[in-house]
Design a binder for these strands. Sequence first.
DNA 1: TGTGAATGTAAGCACCGATTACAACGATTG
DNA 2: CAATCGTTGTAATCGGTGCTTACATTCACA
Lengths: 233, 233
Amino acid sequence: MRRPAKSPPAGRRSAKPHPARAPAAKPYHHGDLRRVLIDAAMQLVGEGGPEAVSVREAARRAGVSPGAPFRHFPSRDALMNAVAEEAQRRFRAEIEAALADAPAGDPLGRFRCLGIAYLRWAMKNPTHFEIISSRRFFDHDRSAGVSSDNAELIGLTERILAEAFSAGQLGACNLKQVQIAGRALVYGFARMHIDGHMPRWGVGEAEVEQTAADVVDLFIAGIAGRAAPSAKV
Amino acid sequence: MRRPAKSPPAGRRSAKPHPARAPAAKPYHHGDLRRVLIDAAMQLVGEGGPEAVSVREAARRAGVSPGAPFRHFPSRDALMNAVAEEAQRRFRAEIEAALADAPAGDPLGRFRCLGIAYLRWAMKNPTHFEIISSRRFFDHDRSAGVSSDNAELIGLTERILAEAFSAGQLGACNLKQVQIAGRALVYGFARMHIDGHMPRWGVGEAEVEQTAADVVDLFIAGIAGRAAPSAKV
DNA sequence: TGTGAATGTAAGCACCGATTACAACGATTG
DNA sequence: CAATCGTTGTAATCGGTGCTTACATTCACA
């Protein structure tokens, strides 16, 4: 891409097409190039953000010619989509693991747990989170598998909120609004962290996790503590 | 950048160096190329997002050779920074105009007004908002003018919240947490809109402005309606 | 009237994404 | 066992990009 630098002609293999019939040297066919390319791209994302991913560099790291990746991905965007799907898969696994540990009897507690887990993962894997959330690198509607992943997560929070409401843990409120506001809150917080806004708001790296929890708690207190339906300002 | 396409060899001027001494034809010196380049870049941002900005295309639109912009901006990033400063200036003007119309006696109302204005501008100028908020295109710490712009806006909301607290419009709460949560909420909502998440959450383009207002109101109700200092969950 | 700083052009580098023609495998068949 | 054919790699190439350097032109000021 735009001057990723970092490529001194680091010893590429001498590119002999293939050593006749030495089976262990360097087989002409890579084995699982697709997988390796995705891994390389993820590594690149981790190093320099989504912009730093180039097909050529991924191919270089896979020890393969610049044109080879296009046998597996029709375009750079397709590669990015594959990376995003992988990231989304990991994200979902983390969320589900966190929810599995949460008490089933306390819906609002589960809601809180969801928010905390979301923020923790996003802040620990900032570039992966960025890839997932940006439509530029990942067309959710196009890739059915992940799209349903996402829809499932949305449905999950919807269900949890509905349970909380039924259990009387929520004041009078519009559940859809609560859901969107909650999502906007954690999404915004995560992106503020990623985009480097936190220092400007007086939140150091050390306090950011505590602040994340505080913010989630503040929101939950806001929707839970509604004494009367005098909510409308 | 990466295949912005859109450039059929549309009639470039025949590039005669300069017509001897015809003063009105095409002066060798552009006049205010810096300004024109920023405008062209802003236009490009509006058309295809920050990724779609290329120095060459900006130069093309300014009717100037590909190397000329580098007399005014040492790098593409510098150009993007200039674009971001311009966008930030417009953003700030909008916010201040909105606040000027808000009643002075109702701090919480002013806070609400601030949030609404923020969201309205962000959703009307999505790409400009994206540039402002992403550190990739704009290093806030580097450009003093805009940095202070931003610091002033942060200080402003801080003051408004403090006033609201003094006026008894807020329940017992940590003001800093409220400020960060509020920011995360509007930032997240704006970015969700930009990143195309809204359809997934069942919010159509027609309802998005109303939803934005609802979400702001929900948040304000949450921090205002605190009956007792039982805030901590 | 000169002269130097400012600002443009032209040419070229390295890198990128993407396409094409060709070569080497490897599995499926006859 | 061997021919074949689809898969997956290479090599070369194209146009686009950011950026640099050498050179040309103009403007403003001494």
